[in-house]
Design a protein around this nucleic acid. Structure first.
Length: 786
DNA sequence: AGGAACGTATAATCG
DNA sequence: ATACGTTCCT
């Protein structure tokens, strides 16, 4: 148990106080994750069974990291049995088991934000409401907020506050939309993200026996990032621990930055009311940053009222002061910072990965992206369209979803005419209205016996009939094939493969093809990893996993690139050298929050988060004017700069506007005319293999979805390839023969038994030495001769 | 069905 | 400015 020796006193207390309610206030960089992992390891070593421990995290990434670290201490068998994951994934798991009790079928689909939006849009349209007045984002927000506050449609309808608010916002029918939305979701046997929490609450509220079962099961409950929990999460946790009170929550009120989506800082501030015997431990030693950075951050956050008292300190070097610099325009700001990065790489031997540029809004990334590209410094931007949001990916996933859950109407609508099979808008609208009028799902109205009553003509009915049988065939295959085999089948049988290979041959078509290719690689890795671990490897399980994945989950520190991201995205990460840019009033804090003290405090916490990402140096920059919404506007330094005590601040002359501009003109590259290719790269999914030849399969979840990438001082322009792009089809597909020996990256060595189908759908039947016979599409298999 | 023309929003975003 | 979605036209 000597790992406990590596902890400081409050950390050790937080680990070893296993029984009763515990609150751990974990300052930035204070070893929070270490405490959580060791606490769990300690529980296990005390003889607690892993399946009696529930550990809830904010992101999949956090859960995954923690699991790995626990596995290192206690071994993978134990750690695998832990109930550890995000609120959403754990609750989804419980809801699949208890689906009946809340009126769901266990194959329910989880709608993502886009699915929900589509559904809402069609409801608003059906109700004949003006889409201008009933703006999707507003209606969505109202419904989401209601669910997060555990307000059901009928409660909403009866609540004067909601009704009045909607009336004065000129959206009096919001309550009806909410009600209809709930009905349509249920009819589709689907839930949205908020429902995962909402239904879990209903489940525990209405079924004492089920609640008791889980109370018994989860003898120890741990919650990470508690300051970011909303009411639904709060209530569910409270219920779960009612019996034994063995709850340990970890959080930092100073880092609460998500109230705009329902998080309640009061959950952490008011915990003592719920548990009078609460034990509080404060982790105040920061191991990440220099004293200067910690002190500066402290001096800033002190300007907030309503905080839990703590004094974060560092025993690291004093370090450099926080540099504050200014530029005339946003472009110059970027140039100044890029030059600074280049200089420090030269002079201090730092690498691109040592730097991060953090900004308030995604729109600010542009100037830095351009600057870094010109300066030939590799960089990576986070926060684009996530991999699984892309149309071609969603389309394919929609096939999977419909095969598993026929009643998933949003997915069905996506694929009914993709690829084109002459079932047009008019037909779909007729089907939808027929379904609504007899109160059945879209799928049901397409069945023999029902379809005849829709008034559609014979040939259309025929086409629908063919589509229905295809889905039914997929349905059977979903049960019998592995996720990968199933996907390959869908790809070829649906005609998507044909569409992708014969359709557009432009850059976009290529991107789409590459993205589908990526998804297939991901499925291959997934299936293989599941075969090895003995877990279910059907498409159903894969869907469960991808439904709850996001681009926050992936490894971000694996590439030697400057990282560009919003401050929100940077939470939990750390960098040697951090640039906080655009620190101007009306940008940061944003003008929307300027007046409201509550929001101003949240913005200040955001600044605190940004500062405390830095290990060695932090640089704050602002400009005197910037382009926004198509026009130039004057800017002023943010009030947050004045909130930092001046003794921790330095304003180097060399980086300020009053210096002659020639002193920091951009070094022009000799090859400035060279084009770095497309700005937007196809993104990779998290299951993808490392392009740089990693041999580990699914477990090497490396690449990030939802980023753009570029730059590249290390490669000659002629061979430039975005570092994030996986080669699509490097293996010629016509060069195989029966009996040939081949090597597959994941499956290993094998012998070709048969070659089936024609290009581009050539399939190989391969007898693998260790894994038996598999059918692979040549396109995706990435084989090489032995 | 596909593309051009037009209109519109424009903070952060876990799952 | 610009990206994105929608509608209208061919």
């Amino acid at each position: 148990m000597n790992y406990l020796d590596s902890l400081n006193e409050p950390q050790r207390q937080a680990v070893m106080t296993t029984d009763g309610p515990v609150l751990v206030i974990a300052g930035a960089g204070s070893g929070k994750t270490r405490v959580l992992t060791m606490r769990i390891a300690y529980l296990l070593q005390q003889g607690v069974k892993p399946y009696n421990i529930l550990a809830l995290t904010f992101t999949n990434k956090a859960a995954k990291e923690m699991k790995e670290r626990i596995a290192q201490i206690v071994g993978p068998e134990e750690s695998q049995q832990l109930w550890m994951g995000t609120f959403h994934s754990i609750f989804a798991k419980i809801l699949r088991i208890e689906a009946d009790a809340v009126g769901l079928n266990r194959d329910f689909t989880i709608y993502d934000t886009q699915d929900s939006k589509n559904l809402l849009k069609s409801i608003i349209k059906d109700m004949g409401l003006d889409e201008k007045e009933y703006k999707l984002s507003n209606v969505m927000g109202a419904i989401s907020q209601a669910k997060n506050d555990l307000v059901s449609p009928s409660m909403y309808a009866q609540d004067v506050n909601f009704i009045e608010r909607d009336k004065s916002a000129r959206r009096p029918r919001t309550t009806d939309i909410y009600n209809q939305y709930a009905i349509r979701l249920k009819k589709s046997n689907s839930v949205d993200f908020d429902d995962l929490l909402f239904y879990t609450h209903i489940l525990f509220r209405d079924h004492q026996d089920i609640l008791a079962k889980y109370q018994q099961k989860f003898k120890y409950v741990l919650v990470d990032e508690y300051q970011d929990t909303n009411k639904a999460q709060y209530v569910i946790i409270k219920k779960l621990v009612e019996a034994h009170h063995n709850i340990c929550v970890v959080g930092d009120d100073a880092q609460s930055i998500y109230s705009f989506r329902g998080a309640r800082i009061e959950n952490i501030l008011g915990l003592e009311r719920d548990y009078p015997d609460l034990k509080i431990f404060k982790l105040e030693q920061n191991y990440r940053s220099t004293q200067n950075i910690v002190n500066a951050a402290n001096s800033l956050i002190e300007k907030n009222q309503g905080r839990l008292k703590k004094t974060v300190f560092s025993q690291n070097d004093e370090g450099d002061k926080i540099r504050i610099c200014s530029a005339h325009s946003d472009t110059e700001e970027a140039g100044m910072i890029v030059r600074d990065i280049a200089m420090r790489m030269r002079n201090e031997g730092l690498r691109p990965q040592d730097f991060a540029v953090l900004y308030r809004t995604n729109a600010q990334s542009r100037a830095f992206e351009d600057g870094l590209r010109q300066g030939r410094i590799p960089y990576r931007i986070y926060g684009g369209l996530a991999f699984y949001q892309r149309k071609e990916i969603k389309d394919l996933l929609a096939y999977f979803r419909v095969a598993v859950n026929h009643n998933d109407s949003e997915s069905l609508k996506r694929i009914i005419n993709y690829p084109a099979r002459a079932i047009g808008m008019t037909t779909i609208e007729k089907l939808v209205s027929a379904a609504t009028s007899v109160d059945v799902s879209l799928w049901q109205v397409m069945q023999p016996g029902m379809i005849e009553k829709t008034g559609l003509n014979g040939s259309t009915q025929n086409k629908i009939g063919k589509f229905v049988s295809m889905i039914e065939m997929f349905s059977m295959q979903a049960e019998n094939l592995t996720a990968y085999e199933f996907a390959a089948e869908v790809l070829s049988q649906s005609g998507i493969m044909k569409e992708l290979t014969e359709g557009k041959n432009d850059a976009e078509g290529k991107d789409r093809y590459d993205n589908v290719n990526e998804l297939m690689n991901s499925l291959q890795d997934y299936s293989q990893e599941r075969v090895e671990s003995g877990d279910d490897n059907h498409i159903r399980s894969y869907l469960e996993e991808v439904a709850l994945i996001s681009d926050m989950d992936q490894d971000r520190g694996d590439m030697d690139q400057v990282k560009l991201m919003t401050i929100h995205s940077s939470k939990g990460l750390e960098f040697n050298s951090v640039y906080i840019v655009g620190v101007e009033d009306e940008t940061f804090p944003g003008q929307q929050s300027g007046y409201n003290p509550k929001e101003l405090e949240e913005e200040r916490r955001l600044m605190y988060v940004a500062l405390t990402r830095a290990k060695d140096t932090a640089t704050i920059s602002y400009c005197l004017s910037r382009f926004q919404y198509g026009q130039r506007k004057d800017c002023h330094p943010s009030r947050f700069i004045a909130d930092i005590d001046s003794e921790y601040i330095d304003r180097p002359d060399s980086m300020n506007v009053d210096r002659p501009r020639s002193a920091f003109r951009m070094e022009q590259s000799p090859r400035s005319s060279f084009s770095y290719g497309q700005r937007t790269q196809p993104v990779q999914n998290p299951y993808a293999r490392n392009h740089t030849g990693a041999s580990s399969p699914y477990s090497s979840m490396r690449q990030t979805s939802g980023f753009r990438s570029g730059g590249g001082i290390q490669r000659p322009p002629s061979s430039f390839k975005p570092a994030t792009k996986v080669s699509s089809v490097d293996v010629p597909s016509g060069t195989y023969s029966v009996g040939q020996r081949v090597v597959h990256e994941t499956f290993g060595r094998g012998t070709i038994l048969a070659i089936e189908g024609t290009m581009p759908n050539t399939k190989l039947k391969i007898q693998f030495d260790n894994l038996g016979v598999k059918q692979l599409l040549v396109k995706f298999a990435r084989l090489r001769p032995e």
